[in-house]
Design a protein around this nucleic acid. Structure first.
Length: 853
RNA sequence: GCCCGGGUGGCGGAACUGGUAGACGCAAGGGACUUAAAAUCCCUCGGCCGCAAGGCUGUGCGGGUUCGAUUCCCGCCCCGGGCACCA
């Protein structure tokens, strides 16, 4: 055995062995219970970053642990390969996106393999391959048939920098999720998926996903944003028409003293009376000129304009003025709001500003609201007043009664409203899945027949870098014939949002080569749902909501049978590092700093806050460099030890060295004793001295602790800490006159428990300890209850809740004996002397608390 | 504003159902080995008092429940994330 731990040599050797033996291949015919472990697949940017290392290290622990525990584990890896960076690279470096992407994949695959992750590489897929996206096109066609995919003209989010539209979910605070540039509204004809048809089911199931973190479920519920309410028709004065409003507060109907319309409301211009036309027009223009960020910001002042028209409150029959208001949104509810200034704060402010009348219809208990003196709207509960036959009811009952009353009179009906909007999936990009539709002057938009799939993404495109998708300029692609009439037609040149590909890749992993349908239903039934999904919390709404939707769509298309794709979800924290900058040269990479000074100009370096590692701020660590210096096992161990998975991980160079030292320590420990140990037989429990029995107890306690920490809890940091404690105990024991069999059991336990975390060094040490069979074959160790038994136990003695002594008593000691021993402790006696013992509390195995006064 | 998290030594973090607060690791200080360095090993390490035994104090702040609170309850403060004129 080598005296020195040499990770480079060991790791490449074991990786080759695993690849050759096909150790991690998942087969359906395997009789063991299945376990599908999945990490979110990466975008092939070119190099893996520390976030990947962390995500995939966490997943690999679980994968290896489950495999050791007798599960037939499916642990696949692939590439979310369409997307904009490939097009940017094409423009900047003149490489083709396909080539650039494939090179990146090759490079990153090598990097992942160097980390020793236990993937079934036979199932690898890349979403940019026609073998993958052709099935996506087919699913689209089926969705189109069922009306779940449709095209419509709408005001959509347009990112001027990416030159494409975005889904609502992809707009963060008015900016593009990808490039952070402001988003504009634009009226365009675009493809949508009818995710709103699944709003109720998506919401419902959030209550049936116990394996998901509550914050993620809350975010999804908020995003869906269900509210129960009422649609009410307000007849227009001097017209047969009426204006429909949506409200969640029908109980306040009698207090509606005016109406507010969105400036984009179709009736807005029509309602303007002759004398007010100019003012109304000016207001509409003003609101439209304000961009989305400003429009939805807090600071925007509530403004409006009177249209000159009136409608009637259907409950009171009173004439009420109609306003346009800048805070009313066209895309929520009906774009028209019945304004109740006494019971809605926005309406209150608006009414005060424009001198509109107020009428109290809900009286809170113990307070008398007076419209003349109110300082704010009362939005809480109360008793109904000024509401004709509904007076005296509590307002909750009033809601029901008024809704029913309106329904009876044909003036309204109960409805549900969602915040969720349909998913906009067209993108004006080249590097994506072509939408399989053609446009014929005679027949309109026609789906491409299934027999003509895939619609291949052509490769002979030019990247000018000047606006617009190159696909839209490629004549050979555009011109085709109409599948209906055979006449000349044009192809759709938009491609799918890349979130479409990531909405079903986890299904395709069950049968990546299946050639006759998107998925093999039998394979999907076997493997799905994913038992454990792991990825960043930043996907809480977008990806995770789309994937749930898509799964339900495929179910309803009869392709699969599951309702939900992911049974358990773990959202991991980010990898952070402090930023450093030079006043002269801006952000600095770690290697541009020497002894606190900028390597370029020797100025003092300014240390910034801990932030998510990002190239733009240069606070990044390259995993390759880390592997080169310390090896993959150390990189894995550090990311798992430094913080629990769901928390952010703060990078610390010294911490890495500490992990490397720990692995060296284990290596040395085995090396120094392997001669003694490999000659040992089985442990004879009866013949051991106290020191040996004590060590065995620690060994078996550690097995129990580590098993519990990994299984379900994912507390890898404490699992590793427990093994470190065991190693400390072994070091101490080995320095005495150790029993060879006990020492062997202890060392082997360390190796076996650490295997999921650091697979290379443990495989090597296992072999050095004389095992011809693999660690995988040995399985996960179990603990021996009898070895856990101790002869004595430590009891803490408190007086009035403060620790005053510690006792070691025989394990068999009864309550009385313990109590007596506690009373006799010298220090305890000092504290109870001269006082009356009121009460003695004994917690078995733990403590005695003597209450005195 | 509303909804989720979170606040513990110099640092990352532990304490699982209310029962010894600070496991494990890092950093720091002291020592051993060495011609020297690295590596390794040993000791100390929340604060204050004390030679020591030991005592007081301490988990964001203020209260409460309890024999006992980092843990439960009430009211605040701060940090992170999500949503936000949603009618």
């Amino acid at each position: 055995m080598q005296a020195r731990y040499n990770p480079a040599e060991i790791e490449s050797r074991w990786q080759a062995i695993w690849a050759e033996q096909g150790e991690f291949r998942a087969r359906e015919e395997d009789a063991r219970p299945k376990y599908y472990l999945l990490e979110m697949f990466p975008y092939p940017s070119g190099r893996i970053h520390m976030g990947h290392v962390r995500n995939y290290s966490i997943g690999d622990v679980v994968s290896r642990f489950k495999r050791l525990n007798g599960f037939n584990v499916l642990h696949p890896m692939g590439w979310d390969a369409f997307g904009m960076p490939a097009e940017n690279a094409a423009i900047q470096h003149g490489t083709h996106p396909a080539l650039w992407t494939r090179e990146n994949i090759a490079n990153m695959r090598t990097q992942l393999q160097k980390m020793g992750f236990s993937y079934d590489w036979q199932r690898e897929l890349a979403t940019c391959e026609p073998d993958y996206y052709r099935w996506e096109q087919l699913i689209f066609l089926r969705m189109f048939e069922k009306g779940l995919a449709y095209k419509k003209s709408a005001a959509v989010n347009w990112c001027t920098s990416c030159e494409t539209v975005l889904a609502n979910e992809q707009v963060e605070e008015g900016c593009c999720w990808r490039c952070d540039n402001p988003v504009e509204l634009k009226e365009l004809d675009q493809w949508f998926f009818r995710i709103t048809a699944y709003a109720e089911e998506l919401l419902d199931w959030t209550a049936r996903l116990p394996g998901w973190p509550e914050p993620v479920l809350t975010m999804q519920r908020n995003w869906i944003g269900k509210s129960l309410g009422c649609e009410i028709d307000f007849p227009l004065e001097g017209s047969e028409e009426s204006i429909r409003v949506f409200t969640t507060r029908p109980d306040t109907l009698f207090g509606a003293t005016f109406m507010s319309l969105a400036p984009e409301h179709p009736l807005a211009r029509q309602l303007a009376s002759a004398d007010r036309r100019a003012e109304v027009e000016a207001f509409i223009r003003k609101v439209q000129s304000v961009d989305r960020i400003e429009r939805t910001s807090d600071e925007l002042e509530k403004e409006g304009v009177f249209t000159g028209s009136y409608c009637r409150n259907p409950a009171t029959d009173e004439l009420i003025p109609i306003f346009l208001a800048n805070f009313v949104l066209m895309d929520y509810g009906t774009g028209a709001v019945m304004a109740v200034p006494t019971h809605d704060q926005r309406d209150f402010e608006f009414a005060r500003k424009y001198g509109l009348s107020l009428k109290v219809v809900i009286q809170p208990e113990g307070e008398l609201l007076d419209p003349a003196t109110m300082q704010a709207a009362w939005e809480g509960a109360g008793t109904m007043v000024n509401s004709a036959g509904f007076d005296g009811l509590d307002n909750d009952t009033g809601k029901q009664r008024i809704a029913a009353w309106l329904e009876e009179r044909g003036q309204g009906r109960q409805t549900v409203n969602y915040r969720l909007r349909d998913w906009l999936v067209s993108r004006q990009r080249y590097w994506g899945t072509p939408i399989p539709v053609v446009y014929c002057a005679a027949c309109g938009a026609r789906p491409v027949p299934e027999s003509q799939l895939p619609v291949r993404l052509p490769t002979d495109v030019e990247f000018s870098g000047e606006g617009g998708s190159p696909l839209a300029k490629l004549e050979s692609f555009i011109h085709t014939t109409c599948p209906q009439c055979g006449g000349p037609a044009r192809r759709e040149t938009d491609t799918f949002d890349t979130f479409v590909e990531s909405s079903w890749y986890f299904l395709r992993y069950a049968c990546p080569q299946f050639a006759t349908a998107p998925v093999d239903a039998a394979a999907v039934s076997h493997w799905l749902p994913v038992d454990q999904y792991i990825g960043g919390v930043e996907h809480a709404v977008m990806h995770l909501l789309y994937a749930r939707f898509w799964t339900k769509v495929m179910r309803d298309l009869g392709m699969i049978e599951i309702d939900e794709p992911f049974a358990n979800l773990l959202t991991q924290g980010m990898v952070c590092m402090e930023t450093r900058s030079c006043p002269e040269h801006g952000w600095l990479y770690p290697e541009q700093i020497a002894e606190g000074r900028c390597a370029l100009c020797a100025a003092d370096v300014v240390t910034g806050r801990n932030e998510k590692m990002s190239k733009s701020k240069k606070n990044v660590i390259d995993p390759d460099g880390l592997i080169e210096r310390f090896g993959a096992d150390t990189a894995r161990l550090f990311t798992l030890f430094a913080a629990p998975p769901e928390k952010d991980l703060e990078w610390n160079e010294q911490g890495v060295e500490g992990c490397f030292r720990f692995l060296n320590r284990i290596w040395r420990l085995v090396h120094d004793h392997y001669g003694l140990v490999t000659a040992a037989g089985a442990v004879d429990g009866a013949a051991l001295d106290t020191a040996a029995r004590d060590l065995r107890r620690v060994v078996h306690q550690t097995i129990r602790k580590v098993t519990g920490d990994i299984d379900g809890r994912f507390h890898f940091n404490t699992a590793i800490a427990a093994v470190m404690e065991l190693v400390n105990a072994i070091s101490t024991y080995a320095g005495k006159t150790p029993d060879a069999a006990v020492l062997r059991e202890a060392l082997e336990t360390v190796v076996r428990l650490l295997n999921p975390f650091v697979p290379h060094i443990t495989a090597e040490l296992w072999q050095e300890l004389g095992h011809a069979d693999s660690l995988e074959a040995a399985g996960w160790p179990s603990w021996d209850e009898s070895a856990l038994q101790a002869d004595s136990m430590l009891i803490v003695v408190q007086v009035n809740g403060k620790v005053r002594g510690k006792l070691t008593v025989p394990a068999a000691a009864d309550r009385q004996a313990i109590e007596q021993a506690a009373m006799e402790d010298d220090n305890v006696r000092r504290f109870i002397a001269g006082q009356t013992v009121r009460k003695v509390i004994v917690v078995p195995q733990r403590l005695v608390n003597i209450v005195v006064a």
